[in-house]
């Protein structure tokens, strides 16, 4: 008798657990596109791309080994990139070595875009077919990565950079990387 009474509560208990999970799930902030946090700590992919207006010069991740650097994927057609551009200019003024990678864009468009809004990058590489973007686990533009002197990805940001993110996340990390 007692045992059957307990058994009768099983459905309720299972359901209650489910509701608890759903409550947690509902309060868990859910980004529309997940963050691929697993990239952090991974070795940066091998990327070899032509440099914009570089007369055949190429950007390679290997050539940056031993120095920390930042990579910003952008495109002249992308609204959020324009939104974060001022932030990039500020970062450039504080001598952050930034490499821009144009994502599926035309050289002419990028040149005139950077001419218009200013060029914060020490070099701009062209990822015309988006393959390098896929290697970096890109889900869109803009996205920003920080790679340390050992070639490990230390930071990955999806979407536009803001003052707050730069101040609270990017700059403290950058300082710790350059002090090493």
């Amino acid at each position: 008798m007692e045992k059957s009474k307990i058994k009768a509560f099983t459905p309720f208990i299972v359901f209650a657990l489910l509701v608890v999970f759903l409550v947690i799930g509902l309060h868990h902030s859910k980004p529309q596109v997940p963050k691929f946090a697993q990239h952090i700590g991974d070795t940066a992919p091998v990327t070899d791309l032509p440099i914009l207006n570089g007369n055949g010069a190429r950007f390679t991740t290997a050539s940056w080994h031993g120095r920390p650097y930042m990579i910003n994927f952008f495109a002249s057609w992308c609204g959020d990139c324009k939104a974060e551009h001022e932030e990039l200019m500020t970062l450039a003024a504080s001598h952050l070595p930034m490499i821009g990678i144009t994502f599926k864009d035309k050289a002419d468009n990028v040149t005139s875009y950077l001419g218009r809004v200013g060029d914060p990058f020490i070099a701009v590489a062209q990822d015309d077919n988006g393959r390098a973007g896929i290697d970096w686990g890109l889900t869109g533009v803009p996205e920003t990565f920080v790679v340390d002197a050992q070639g490990i990805i230390r930071w990955h940001h999806i979407g536009a950079l803001t003052d707050d993110i730069a101040r609270d996340e990017l700059m403290p990390l950058w300082e710790s990387l350059t002090q090493q």
Partner: peptide, 21 residues
């Protein structure tokens, strides 16, 4: 809606647990 689900189903399952035997 989650609250409604909790009340409706939770209530009915408690009723079931109390009366099943």
């Amino acid at each position: 809606v989650l609250a409604l689900l909790g009340i409706a189903t939770g209530g009915a399952l408690i009723l079931y647990a109390a009366r099943a035997h």
